[in-house]
Write a protein that binds this DNA or RNA. Structure first.
Lengths: 159, 159
DNA sequence: ATTATTATTGATATTGATTATCATTATCAT
DNA sequence: ATGATAATGATAATCAATATCAATAATAAT
């Protein structure tokens, strides 16, 4: 079963989401300020991933004296609370690995960075189905698995 | 079935890979130069994703007068030939989308950027198995599907 | 309600990565 | 060998991200 989650501005829950985020900010010791409210509003109401500059520009419509630095700081807080994700944009990242043309995916060690490609993923057949359910037509996908490689696992046990 | 692909420096095919890349460069009208050879060598022999600066530093060991700009230019060529991929590093990307804590993934329109989360992916059960086969222990994963949303599909047909 | 504490803010400066420019150099077809 | 020109590296310019700090605003304590 594929479930579509709340994701557009028309969603009446948007307000509730912002209130919930505000509650979490306060409960974890952060103060609730007007600049932060403006930033939260932009992020919770958007159905697009946004760059810090885009958030900055949009939030200044209601908070004209907002500083870009405050956007970066708020993003950091929200990330620590796992309320936002950092999204991968095709073609913009600057870490390079030789590809293997075809349908292989990446498995990367978060400790040392060593990486291997793998294939034989069962899910790929499902990707188009998921997209179609949401009204999308797929042109590509990106999958990375993260973990510890054999060597780093061993070294972790030794300490 | 899970197949592990050539991915470490010990692999004797490494040399062949570089020759193959060199061949493709020439066949598509690019000239074969010493700086490029040095860059190709670093990328094809590495089992780590590398930043432009890392490629630069490593390649200068054999090509001391190499300029960083040449690294960027060569990366661009290799990307156009689909010989390399740009890799997503956890936590370094600066495009922000509100997350949905739990196991949801992202479906993004390459045209307008509108995005939805989805869940119910069958593959997740397979991730650990794939990792274990390669000696890794997984701590997380990143999946994004790319395509055109309903609206952008419609507009494309109108033109 | 008032005040004191201190987290937060925005301005500014700094850093660092990426891109643009251009004269010089090296590749490759002839 | 030679000439056309793609490619190079030095330099400058741009832009995003981070650090610093005095002024300000949010909260707790009174």
């Amino acid at each position: 079963m594929i479930i579509n989650i709340n994701n557009n501005m028309e969603n009446p829950n948007t307000v509730t989401i912002q209130k919930e985020w505000e509650r979490q900010l306060q409960q974890t010791g952060s103060r609730l300020t007007e600049p932060r409210r403006a930033i939260l509003k932009v992020i919770t109401e958007s159905d697009h991933p946004l760059t810090p500059i885009q958030i900055y520009d949009q939030a200044r419509q209601s908070e004209p004296y907002l500083g870009l630095v405050t956007v970066y700081r708020t993003i950091e807080i929200l990330e620590n609370l796992h309320l936002i994700d950092r999204i991968h944009n095709l073609g913009q990242c600057q870490t390079i690995f030789r590809g293997t043309s075809g349908h292989q995916h990446l498995l990367t060690c978060t400790q040392c960075g060593s990486s291997v490609h793998f294939e034989g993923l069962l899910a790929e057949a499902q990707f188009e189905e998921i997209a179609a359910f949401n009204g999308y037509k797929i042109s590509g996908h990106w999958l990375q698995l993260y973990g510890l490689c054999q060597q780093c696992l061993k070294e972790e046990h030794e300490n």
